[in-house]
């Protein structure tokens, strides 16, 4: 089974800080990590490979340091990592990103399954998965929380979560899935995996290598543009209740009565 997992390197939410004066992100001290949802996409791919054989290729588009994310994926057991990196890819919106990823996957040859996390925690768009499916001519299912493969080795039964429950779906590979964290528990890296990942060769594919049209990648290939950013403002209206636990609770109950809650 040929499985491609798309991962993104994102700023670690724990280390991100914002400059409230300027309304901007402070880059200093921000650590880059694999997007949390993508770990579960990778785990799904590894489990498939462990059961049905084949190969898991991990793909990431990003700056040169995104190589670290690919090495981490290799330490978890992925077979191959490919970095899509080129100055010309910068500034891509989801339209340009899906074009670039699709060019890379086409170059890899026929695939049975493409897996993505539900969304990246920096952009939060959740659009790359479905868009990429269209580019590759594949059916897709988003928000997958359970997955099984039937005896024929290519029909899948999937649970797709929605607001008031879930749908059970059937589809045949090849297909693209975006997965939820609840699909599986991501494995730990192994020492063997870490040692292998350290030495692994990670090819870097640029625009030329992909045969990508310059007008369809990066900023040039993006339909949307950011015109401004700001920090959300929260209404300051706090009243800290004072005293012992008993006194605070009594004050709260009093205010509940005033507000007609009690």
């Amino acid at each position: 089974m040929n499985i491609v997992v798309c991962i993104k390197q994102v700023p670690d939410a724990k280390t991100v800080r914002f400059d409230t004066e300027k309304g901007t992100l402070v880059r200093e001290g921000v650590e880059a990590v694999i997007n949390p949802f993508d770990f579960h996409a990778l785990e799904a791919g590894l489990q498939m490979r462990d059961t049905y054989g084949g190969e898991v290729t991990v793909l990431s588009m990003g700056p040169p340091q995104a190589e670290n994310a690919l090495r981490e994926a290799l330490s978890l057991g992925a077979d191959k990592g490919i970095l899509l990196s080129d100055r010309a890819f910068a500034g891509a919106d989801t339209l340009a990103t899906t074009y670039t990823l699709a060019k890379a996957i086409e170059k890899l040859g026929p695939v049975d399954l493409v897996l993505c996390g539900k969304q990246a925690i920096d952009g939060d768009t959740a659009q790359v998965g479905p868009g990429l499916a269209v580019r590759l001519g594949l059916p897709h299912v988003t928000c997958v929380s359970a997955l099984s493969v039937l005896d024929d080795g290519k029909t899948m039964h999937l649970r797709r979560v929605n607001e008031d429950g879930y749908d059970m779906l059937e589809l045949e590979m090849p297909a693209l899935l975006t997965v939820l964290a609840s699909l599986n528990t991501s494995r730990l890296p192994s020492l063997k995996g870490k040692m292998r990942a350290r030495k692994a060769d990670i090819p870097v594919w640029d625009a030329q290598k992909l045969g990508a049209e310059p007008g369809r990648i990066g900023l040039a290939g993006s339909a949307t543009q950011v015109v401004s950013t700001s920090l959300p403002t929260f209404e300051a209206r706090q009243e800290m209740l004072e005293g012992s636990a008993e006194e605070q609770v009594e004050a709260l109950v009093f205010r509940f009565k005033e507000a007609g809650i009690l």
Binding site: L188, P189, S190, L191, K194, M195, R198
Partner: peptide
């Protein structure tokens, strides 16, 4: 060494 650091990282993660 790099390998020793890997062992530390792995055990720490667990």
């Amino acid at each position: 060494t790099e390998e020793q650091q890997m062992i530390v990282d792995l055990a720490w993660q667990i």
